[in-house]
Structures are given as C-alpha cells and as structure tokens.
Design a protein around this nucleic acid. Sequence first.
DNA 1: GCCAACGTTGGC
DNA 2: GCCAACGTTGGC
Length: 138
Amino acid sequence: MAYWLFKSEPNTWSWDQQVAKGDAGEEWDGVRNYQARNHMRNMAIGEEGFFYHSMKEKSVVGIVEVCALCHPDSTTDDPRWECVDIKAVRQVPNPITLAMVKSDPRLSEMVLVKNSRLSVQPVTPEEWSIICEIGGVV
DNA sequence: GCCAACGTTGGC
DNA sequence: GCCAACGTTGGC
C-alpha cells in the first residue's frame, strides 16, 4: 500500500471543495507533468494521500483516498494526460505546515522539501506515520 | 512581488 | 541529441 501527496493551490482547488464532492470524489485533473502523471498511473484504489495547500497556507490539511484508477483527463483532448479520482476521507486536526515539515529532521528527505514543485508526490510509510502523528490523526 | 528552480519546447 | 530560451510554479 503506497502513500501519496496531492498539492493544490487553494484558489484553484481547495480542501473545502474536495470535501463538498463527498464520496463521489473528483478528478485530479489539470496535471501537465510526466512525473506527476506517472505517479498517478501507479496508484491503486483505496490508497491514501495527503492533501496539501500550497502558496499562502503551505500545509497538509486533509487526507484523501484514490477512488478511480488513472484515466484520460477530461479537461484536455491531449491523450498524454491522465489522472485519478480522489475523495476526501478526513480533515487533519492540526494542519502540518511546511515549516514544521522542514524543522523535523526525520522529514528532511520528503519530496515536498526536495522538489516542492512536483504536484503529485510519493510519501514513504515512515513519513506518512510521522505526519499523521504530528497532525493528530489517530 | 520577486526570483530561483525546474520542466518543456524548439532550433540547430 | 544537445542546449538555450522560455514559461510556470511556489517559497520567501
């Protein structure tokens, strides 16, 4: 079971909007980056990911679950771009800020730190449990 | 608002 | 196939 991180600019697509979609979920469309797309191709139904707000907030605010496998991105005719669907699972009680991630030496190897521009990232099981712990996720 | 880092594009 | 130019992202 792999873990992931989905990054979004809240002005474009926010956690609240994701929650409003409920269990039906929503396409994680608009990704135009091969690395990010390849990560989505590797996702399985039921795998979990963090939902990260970039720009002003810079925090992990929620947890999502993959609810549809990789399929063509409906927002483009370009066959290169595909995406999964994700649904909100739960809010993180105490959002984990980027500053908190950077200040924890155990998280210094996170893709979020190393390659902040990648919009869909893998998260290791160790990183997952550390962030859940800091965030108050039981 | 600025700028560094990165990915993509296109000319050669 | 290389590399310079450009556009975009996102932290500060």
